[in-house]
Design a protein around this nucleic acid. Structure first.
Length: 623
RNA sequence: GGAGGCGUGGUGUAGUGGCCAAACAUGCAUCCCUGUCAAGGAUGAGACCGCGGGUUCGAAUCCCGUCGCUUCCGCCA
């Protein structure tokens, strides 16, 4: 899915008409995409870039481009000898100011591909505002240019229609978010970018202090603690389009700095946040992107457990019906030791039914086995379903001989929808976490490969009831699944001492098309409970005080119950734009190695700067 | 930290051991052209095939290393 054609931005007059009010001598100044048949006869001025020049010798056409679109302007020596002479020297991406008369195009030369295709401007005067060297790549969406070249010349890349659309869409989305929350009584409040480092989770970006040599600020991984403190401040409803920084390795949907719509509310319950957020996303889709369709509203809800069981992960792609199906009970006594052995060892057997894949070649099957092995599965069993003359289920596969036709039929009917001859059943037998990961990945892969997912569809859902804590075997301690300020479910509170791993959190993720779009939780607002969680996370009272003292102290002065959510702005725009990388919706993104090709950041600094900061560099081995 | 893919005129690709002193498209330059709109026609310039080493009589092509971009794993409260 390439190019900016997947979404249609609902038109907003405001974007382009403001400029029309200005006058330039006798002629009105227009944007290039706005002139219509009704303007015929008007004296107008246009400014823009030369998108394309077509020099017919005696007659020159130029498509003049600005943000709003294209207008064909024509240079006729009979109208202006001088203008025609100048136009013959003009090249691609020169910046021009032209004045002339809007006229209807001659019969048969209209261009229906152009919004302004009914008219053209006959130029009486031209001014070259700036020239341009030949460009490193063409300003259009027809070719896929190398990522490094695009990023080095990002200011040119951003001239391409696809990128202009993406940036405009991003603006509209963020504007809608701000308006939506403003209408509901939220205050946009800025929080500091230089804060105290409280390393927990991701690595911090550090900023050295000159005034306090040897000490550092950190850039916020998110404004989490600050927004909670704003709740203690009585702000009640807060939001911020907040930049967040995490020094971790990049992915197509992860940049070292990214933007969240950070939201926090007091005196609310989980349901309030879900309703608020769901309303926001339904509005975004229905009001901003015309040709994307919501698969389902209200959004379906799954518990974490259900999602893991059915989809093998906590961010399911719900655009296609392919479900992980457990058959442990059917095969626990099987002769097939791969199955019965795994169950005896405390594991399980689950499978997927791949429609119409029974004719996969050995080579294709080996490919699937290799695929699941990447994700920890020891192997993959398969049953290629067929029917014999008597109408009985058969399966041509090594493991098929362990199952009678009746058993095959029972297994096949366990799937939803029931597997039929011609389908390929694939199974992984292992510990539940391994089974979920391997089959969950395979599910997504096959959804793509079998063309089961509609790119225009948006399948949002809520994932609820995450566990509060997970056991870190290497560190021999419990760790917060979401973050350490997440409230345990009141009904599970009694398990904190006896079975911490069974405690569920008041925590929720909004997901769409296989991406985690946002996550949030009801927070702890009582000092005693927060201390208890810190101690479960193996922080001493002193450590907790040193790191989070500001929050713990604040909780002693009348902290209201509160909670919030933080949808990812970049991912939201990416999904609504139909793009596959957030780099396509960020004006100046970084490469996978976190460099900026345009400015060459990061870069060495002067010795003097380092000395002022009291920093000495340790020589690196490499290079 | 690890695995895969890619790297050939400005851009996008072809070429996978000799036919390559590298082809095609586009862009660029010069010329012709008054209804084009991814204009058309003619002519021309432009790449030592990411970089370094090796194998070979011979390397864009095979091998090793390295760098860059990218996808993924680890990591991402």
């Amino acid at each position: 899915m390439r190019g900016g054609k997947l979404f249609v931005i609902m038109p907003s007059e405001k974007d382009f008409t403001f400029i029309m009010k200005r006058r330039n001598g006798v002629s009105k100044i227009y944007s290039c995409g706005t002139l219509q048949a009704e303007n015929v006869g008007e004296e107008v001025t246009l400014r823009g870039w030369v998108n394309r020049r077509r020099d017919l010798g005696g007659l020159i056409f130029i498509d003049l481009r600005d943000r709003s679109g294209l207008t064909q302007v024509i240079f006729d020596p009979q109208i202006s000898e001088e203008g025609h002479a100048t136009a013959s020297k003009v090249r691609s991406e020169y910046v021009l100011k032209i004045s002339g008369t809007v006229r209807k195009r001659p019969e048969g030369t209209e261009n229906s591909n152009l919004a302004t295709g009914q008219i053209e401007v006959a130029v009486t005067s031209i001014e070259v505002l700036n020239t341009a060297k030949p460009l490193p790549f063409e300003i259009n969406d027809r070719v896929e240019v190398d990522e490094m070249v695009r990023l080095k010349y990002r200011y040119l890349d951003l001239r391409r229609p696809r990128m202009q659309n993406n940036i405009i869409l991003r603006h509209r989305i963020v504007k809608y978010m701000r308006d939506y929350l403003d209408e509901r009584g939220f205050l946009e409040i800025e929080t500091p970018i230089m804060i105290k480092s409280t390393p927990e989770g991701a690595r911090d970006y550090l900023v050295p202090s000159r005034v306090h040599p040897g000490e550092f600020y950190a850039l916020p991984q998110s404004p989490q603690q600050l927004k909670q403190l704003l709740m203690v401040s009585g702000m009640e409803k807060y939001f911020q389009v907040a930049r967040c920084f995490r020094d971790e390795d990049l992915r197509s949907d992860r940049q070292p700095e990214f933007t969240q719509l950070d939201i926090e509310m007091s005196f609310i319950e989980q349901e309030d946040i879900l309703q608020l957020t769901e309303g926001l996303y339904i509005g975004l889709v229905e009001k901003i992107v015309a040709n994307r369709k919501l698969k389902q509203k209200p959004f379906p809800r799954f518990t974490f457990e259900e999602s893991m069981a059915k989809f093998g992960n906590d961010k399911p792609d719900l655009r296609f019906d392919l479900f992980l199906t457990e058959i442990s009970d059917l095969v626990k006594d099987s002769e097939f030791k791969v199955f019965s052995g795994a169950i005896a060892a405390g594991g399980q057997v689950k499978g997927l039914s791949l429609p119409g894949c029974a004719n996969y070649t050995r080579r294709e099957l080996d490919g699937l086995v290799e695929f699941v092995k990447q994700f920890g599965a020891k192997g993959m069993a398969w049953l290629a379903l067929d029917k014999n003359e008597r109408g009985e289920f058969t399966s041509k596969s090594p493991s098929g001989k362990f199952f009678t036709p009746e058993q095959l039929e029972v297994i096949a009917s366990r799937f939803e929808p029931a597997a039929k001859p011609g389908d390929l059943l694939v199974f992984v037998a292992d510990q539940p976490a391994v089974v979920a990961n391997a089959l969950g990945r395979l599910r997504n892969e096959m959804g793509r490969r079998l063309n089961l997912l509609n790119p225009d569809e948006l399948a949002f859902a809520w994932i609820l009831d995450f566990p509060l804590l997970e056991w870190k075997p290497e560190e021999k301690r419990w760790d917060a699944v979401h973050h350490p300020f997440t409230a345990p479910k009141p009904e599970d509170m009694h398990l904190l001492d006896t079975a911490p791993g069974a405690v569920r959190a008041d925590c929720y993720d909004i997901v769409c098309n296989g991406y985690e779009v946002g996550s949030g939780s009801i927070r702890i607002h009582r000092r005693d409970i927060q201390s208890k969680i810190f101690s479960l996370l193996s922080y001493s009272e002193e450590e907790a005080q040193a790191r989070f003292g500001h929050l713990l102290n604040a909780f002693e002065y009348g902290a209201p119950p509160h909670g919030g959510i933080a949808p990812g702005v970049d991912r939201t725009v990416m999904i609504l734009a139909g793009e596959e990388s957030i780099r396509e919706v960020i004006a100046f993104p970084k490469t996978q190695s976190a460099t900026d090709e345009m400015t060459q950041a990061p870069s060495p600094v002067d010795e003097k700067q380092l000395r002022e900061l009291g920093i000495a560099l340790i020589p690196q081995n490499k290079g």
